[in-house]
Nucleic acid binder design. Structure first.
Lengths: 90, 90
DNA sequence: CCCTTATTTAGCGTCAAGACTAATTAGTGA
DNA sequence: TCACTAATTAGTCTTGACGCTAAATAAGGG
């Protein structure tokens, strides 16, 4: 779970997730959106993939990334559990 | 917001938040729970405080930390927005 | 003022994150 | 095979995270 929050801690990676809400995108198309080099973006994709936040599919020479909302939902659940009010037995 | 996720990315810091669900605790009492030195714990408190996840109050020589759930709720909201399904105009 | 307790700050070492350029792999098609 | 495009890996550099011990600060009591 540390990996998920670590992945979310970088603004570019959060923006990537945001981009992917509307559907899958190729690594190249995603990389074109951000003002960093492709290798750097590749590293961000790896971080997101290892955190389970995105999934990759190869289509010919291109790789398409799609959002995996499940991992984010687990993070949400954990967060709610972390700070949610504890039931006091009334 | 990066600071919030960065703070959440460390297991000890998440456990600190969990501990604080049940009420405020002093830095020393919190530090006693974890197998790291007090200076290290102090650094974790700073990270959590700067992320807005906890608040500090000094009482005499001790400092009491309390949970600030609001910051976590903002993170939850952001996460839901990030990966939540976008409304397609049906 | 000195002593004790609680906590942070300073300083140091190690390791990983994040950026770049250059080189490499993977796949397609002439 | 050769060339072309897409993406990653390799190598390097700088910076920040995280752990420690030792020293400094803050507050209170004799």
């Amino acid at each position: 779970m540390s990996d998920v929050f670590k992945a979310l801690a970088h603004p570019v990676r959060r923006q990537v997730l945001k981009k992917l809400r509307d559907g899958p995108m190729t690594a190249g198309d995603l990389a074109a959106v951000f003002p960093v080099s492709k290798p750097t973006m590749s590293g961000h994709f790896t971080a997101l993939r290892e955190a389970g936040l995105i999934r990759a599919e190869r289509h010919g020479t291109t790789i398409r990334y799609r959002l995996n909302a499940g991992a984010a939902e687990e993070a949400i659940a954990l967060l709610m559990g972390l700070v949610g009010k504890r039931e006091t037995d009334t």
